[in-house]
């Protein structure tokens, strides 16, 4: 061992010693860098993918949205600026088919989406790249089945939502032809995004007003209401006494009067 070091030290002033050390140092440095930079290198790849997504989103935006929202999403006299609305807003508006609008009516309505999931994601990425805003909700965050409480969600719903969306989430009228849409058949993701972005006439329910857990409870209640069978028979639209009154005058009294006519018809 001792003789080994002596042998090595004998070559320490060899003329190849310095270049050899340099090569070893470079290799070790390189190896270290290779190991250390393994993650950063995939990030760089994702960044590249992200910028491609943004490019794609920008392209779709220019084709489908810019005529109203402006070439740089700066808005116009007929449509709001989208700078800072965030990916959540785009995911809600485009993902539910509200945007692009079919016509300039009072309010964008839910319809079959025009863009598929990837295109929606691209648009969301583009709009999110303009200025920070709420992120789109992904499925992993929607743990309402596990973390939500139906009864508490019902209380929160009646306090915060029923005044516009009706006691059973069937929707209701607002002023000037605007309306709160029905919540039946809406994706949990979109309900969540609507609460954090406040689309159209809806207010924003920030995480301070309604905590994320409470939002999950509300979603759980809405999903339960959607699945709940009509326990009393035909639901009559779950809109309260108006349809009940209509039914009693048409079917109820109508049938009874019909029978009364039959009972008093002259025997032939």
């Amino acid at each position: 061992m001792n003789s080994g070091i002596k042998k090595l030290s004998r070559y320490r002033r060899h003329r190849f010693a310095r270049p050899a050390l340099l090569v070893v140092a470079l290799i070790s440095m390189g190896a270290t860098f290779q190991v250390a930079s393994a993650l950063p290198s995939t990030t760089r790849m994702e960044t590249t993918a992200q910028s491609t997504l943004i490019e794609e989103g920008k392209r779709i935006f220019a084709q489908g949205c810019s005529s109203c929202h402006g070439l740089n999403a700066e808005g116009s006299s007929i449509a709001p600026s989208l700078i800072g609305v965030g990916a959540a807003s785009v995911d809600f508006q485009v993902g539910t088919g509200r945007m692009p609008m079919a016509d300039m009516s009072q309010q964008a309505m839910r319809k079959t989406p025009i863009y598929n999931a990837e295109q929606t994601a691209a648009l969301a990425a583009y709009v999110a790249s303009l200025a920070p805003g709420p992120d789109a909700i992904n499925e992993a965050q929607l743990t309402y089945e596990r973390d939500g409480n139906t009864a508490e969600g019902g209380e929160l719903f009646r306090t915060n939502c029923a005044m516009c969306h009706n006691f059973a989430g069937q929707g209701g009228a607002l002023t000037q032809g605007k309306y709160a849409p029905t919540l039946m058949g809406v994706d949990a993701k979109h309900i969540y995004e609507a609460m954090i972005t406040g689309p159209q006439s809806m207010p924003v329910f920030s995480d301070k007003t309604i905590t994320p857990e409470e939002k999950l409870s509300i979603i759980k209640w809405i999903k339960a209401a959607e699945k709940e069978p009509n326990l009393g028979g035909a639901s009559l639209g779950r809109v309260g006494p108006v349809t009940e009154g209509l039914l009693v005058w048409t079917f109820g009294l109508g049938l009874l009067i019909g029978i009364a006519v039959w009972l008093t018809v002259k025997a032939r």
């Binding site: 209701g172 009228a173 028979g233 639901s235 779950r238």
Partner: peptide, 20 residues
């Protein structure tokens, strides 16, 4: 035919109201 499905309306609370 369902009439007055009170379980859907929820209990009365002066701070709450339903559309329609």
């Amino acid at each position: 035919a369902s009439i007055n499905p009170i379980w859907l309306y929820g209990p009365y609370n002066p701070g709450q109201i339903s559309a329609g």
